[in-house]
Design a protein around this nucleic acid. Structure first.
Lengths: 333, 333
DNA sequence: AAGATGATGGCAAGCGATTGCCAAATGTTG
DNA sequence: CAACATTTGGCAATCGCTTGCCATCATCTT
């Protein structure tokens, strides 16, 4: 609170008997200054308790050593892993991590980007809700990396939902299910599209029926309506857009006295916190969320670097695997 | 990525036929410039797509319009509400929100503060792990607000654990329990101390026995050892340091075939995501977490303002209430 | 009508670093 | 040993905005 006149490069310079530029270089461009000089400067700086002012540095250099991650909603545990992975990677690189929530709105997302643009070196967009065109547009002005969303020409880190969805179909098929119903998330959600396409294709291959219902809000609260709709559909297996929805469904089914997995099986996506202790424990598609966050930051980090002359944007696809718990079982009958 | 020479105050000034200072004031100090002039400047700015550079602004003014929140670990759902409340409040005030994780370490926490000091106007410390002295020390240099931690002379927002703990004791007493065991979180945790003290006092008042065991890691994984220890203690009711631990305990008890709440009752703290759908659903102390986050930011916001001349630091205590679910029942026998 | 008051706008000096360019010192080479 | 290349350090401009101070000018006051 008190402002005891922070020490600056000039203070250090005077004390060390060199120019301010040398002090600056001692910190940010070591090879540009003699090793012994540097050592001396560093010692003086240490003694004076000097800390470079990141703002001043950023203003001149244009690099903020900061990046922002935009997430639709923190209440969705699905994002924990990703957030944490991203934060860890950033932190390890000495980079400040800004977290913003977009409230599931494309507009908010866009505004956040515009607002933060000057303060950060890049953005990690997790499950971005923005339309493709808007995103491509923004990408020409800003440094973006997507998580769980792919757009031509933009770098991204995604968990393999296609393979995952096939794993789900295989699992259900092997249990004798002849039809499944996919309870979809938001229709403009890229993930929802991916998942449905793969489920549909997989089901077709195996001669299973597949229907899609929805959209449903991808939250626990959405499970009520979703479960009821699924029951009417007559399918013996429910694939929910995500675990939140799946848990809501499980709940509603329990309320209605429907036995899971006796009468109907339920599968989710994400393997969120809680998926293992809900009742019954949820069979769900797990993936290295943390890794995805880390990868996205990695992309941002290397992108700016001189070595990383990117001809084509990096795309990382991470393997997913099905975690089988108690919510799936043999088809009834 | 291309840098099309961002428009500056000077560009706007030239175009609007005023001085740069006027442009600046039109944005940051409206009352200092004539209303019509201002309107004109704003229009020109709009037309030119001008966006003030927050870094430049911060460098000169010393105000960054940014604040940081430090949280021990994002994997703990307990913090969601608080984070979200803080972010919302900050966002509403047009303030950039930085989120940092401290990995449950006091050192990391301190380092983060030092590192971010120049880039933010203040810190929200959630469940800070730092010793009191260190914190007081830091508070003389930085703008701090605590969440779920109280320290003399520092502003804070906490959820009323004392009253909450009494509610727990009352509830258990009314079910006929004669003794409880508190499975403690980290011993240096302020919250753990608070909770135990209140439980102990409450139990004494009602002639109940109360013992403390632990510390246990306040995570689901800590529940195994905790449950076993609790069983040995012979108490008919377990009060876990938090819901994470409680859920772990529930799990272990189920494994061991102990009936909850038939043989033993379990209570947690926080009412985290999942507390309502674990089996059995957890009786737990709920509180307005989001409100706590909001309040902490509020404190930071008003602190700097001229109106908010603080004689004594603000302390907000938010009411808690017990949510009774299925993990508590009449004492056996 | 003259001096006092307040509202407005401009000037210019910073904020604290970075960095292009130059010069001196040092090292290399034939 | 001269000519040239490399290191190393300093100068000073610059990033974009804020703000103290001063000059005007319109508005009051008596």
């Amino acid at each position: 609170m008190s402002t005891p006149k922070r020490t600056t490069v000039y203070d250090v310079a005077r004390e060390a008997g060199v120019a301010a530029s040398t002090v600056s270089r001692a910190f940010s461009n070591p090879r540009r200054v003699n090793a012994t000089t540097r050592q001396h400067v560093l010692e003086v700086a240490e003694r004076l308790g000097y800390r470079p002012n990141p703002l001043a540095s950023a203003l001149q250099s244009g690099h903020t050593a900061t990046l922002a991650m935009l997430v639709p909603d923190i209440a969705n545990p699905h994002f924990f892993g990703t957030i944490r992975g991203a934060e860890r990677r950033a932190s390890a690189a000495g980079i400040t991590f800004i977290l913003g929530f977009t409230e599931e709105s494309a507009d908010t997302e866009r505004n956040q980007i515009e607002r933060l643009a000057r303060s950060v070196d890049g953005f990690v967009l997790a499950s971005s809700r923005m339309p493709e065109a808007t995103t491509v547009d923004l990408a020409s002005e800003h440094n973006l990396a997507l998580v769980n969303r792919e757009i031509d020409g933009l770098p991204s880190a995604v968990i393999d939902n296609a393979s995952g969805s096939h794993q789900i179909v295989d699992h259900l098929a092997s249990l004798g299910h002849r039809s499944l119903v996919y309870l979809s998330g938001p229709h403009h959600s890229w993930l929802a599209g991916q998942r449905w396409r793969a489920l549909h294709a997989g089901a077709a291959q195996r001669g299973m029926g597949a229907r899609r219902l929805g959209p449903f809000p991808p939250q626990v609260a959405g499970g009520g309506a979703a479960a009821d709709a699924a029951l009417v559909s007559g399918a013996s297996a429910i694939v929910a857009h995500n675990d939140l929805l799946a848990i809501g469904i499980l709940r509603r089914l329990a309320e209605r006295g429907v036995d899971v997995p006796g009468e109907i099986s339920v599968v989710g996506y994400d393997d969120i916190f809680g998926a293992d202790f809900c009742a019954p424990a949820l069979t769900t598609l797990a993936g290295p969320q943390e890794e995805a966050g880390r990868a996205a930051v990695e992309i941002l980090l290397t992108k700016g670097s001189p070595t990383g002359v990117q001809d084509s944007p990096r795309r990382v696809v991470l393997p997913s695997h099905l975690v089988i718990r108690d919510s799936t079982g043999p088809a009834p009958g």
